[in-house]
C-alpha cells in the first residue's frame, strides 16, 4: 500500500443491481473489513468523491443519473464496476430493460467480477483504482506543461 498518497473518498450508486453487491459494498465499511482504516470514506456527495463505485447494470431510467453523478465528480476520477451485472449485465443481460454493463454509458477503469462480489474483491478493486487514480493525476500534472510548450512553439 506504499503508493497510497491520498485517502480516496468513494461514492456508491446502485444501478439496477439486486442489492447483493450493495450490501457487500456497505459491509466493506463495517468493522469486519473496515476500509476506513485506509482513510476510505463513503460520501453522499459526488463533488467530494474520487472513486465511483457502481453496482448493477444500466437501464432506461438510470442512464441520466449515472451520467450526472459521473459528470459532477471532479477530475481525476476513477470508476469501479462492482459485480458481474455492472461489468456486462450478468444474469439480467437478456432482460428487456437492461442496456448492458456500466461501460455502455461511462468509461470504466476497474472491473470487479462476482455475483455477488465479495468484500475482499471490492477492496482489491478500490486499491487497483487507486493506482489508476495516481496515473491520471500524473497525466493531468503533465498536461498543462505540454500544452504550454506547444503554445510557446506556435508563438515562436
Amino acid at each position: 500500500m506504499s503508493y497510497v498518497t491520498k485517502s480516496p473518498w468513494i461514492i456508491h450508486y446502485d444501478g439496477s443491481s439486486c442489492n447483493g453487491c450493495d450490501i457487500e459494498v456497505l459491509a466493506c465499511l463495517t468493522p469486519m473489513y473496515d476500509v476506513e482504516r485506509f482513510g476510505i470514506i463513503n460520501t453522499g456527495n459526488p463533488k467530494h468523491a474520487d472513486i465511483f463505485l457502481v453496482t448493477g447494470s444500466v437501464n432506461e431510467q438510470n442512464i441520466t443519473v449515472v451520467k450526472l453523478i459521473y459528470e459532477q465528480m471532479p477530475e481525476p476520477k476513477v470508476v469501479v464496476a462492482i459485480g458481474i451485472c455492472a461489468t456486462s449485465g450478468g444474469i439480467f443481460k437478456e432482460c428487456y430493460n437492461i442496456m448492458g454493463g456500466i461501460d455502455t454509458v461511462i468509461p470504466v477503469d476497474v472491473y470487479v467480477p462476482g455475483c455477488a462480489a465479495r468484500p475482499e474483491a471490492i477492496i482489491d478493486g478500490v486499491v487497483k483504482g487507486l493506482g489508476v487514480l495516481a496515473e491520471k493525476r500524473a497525466a493531468m500534472d503533465q498536461k498543462p506543461a505540454v500544452a504550454a510548450e506547444v503554445k510557446e512553439k506556435e508563438e515562436a
Binding site: N59, Q61, Y96, N97
Partner: peptide
C-alpha cells in the same frame, strides 16, 4: 411509472 426501453414490453 416505469420508464422502459420499449412500450408495453
Amino acid at each position: 411509472f416505469y420508464k422502459v426501453s420499449q412500450p408495453t414490453p
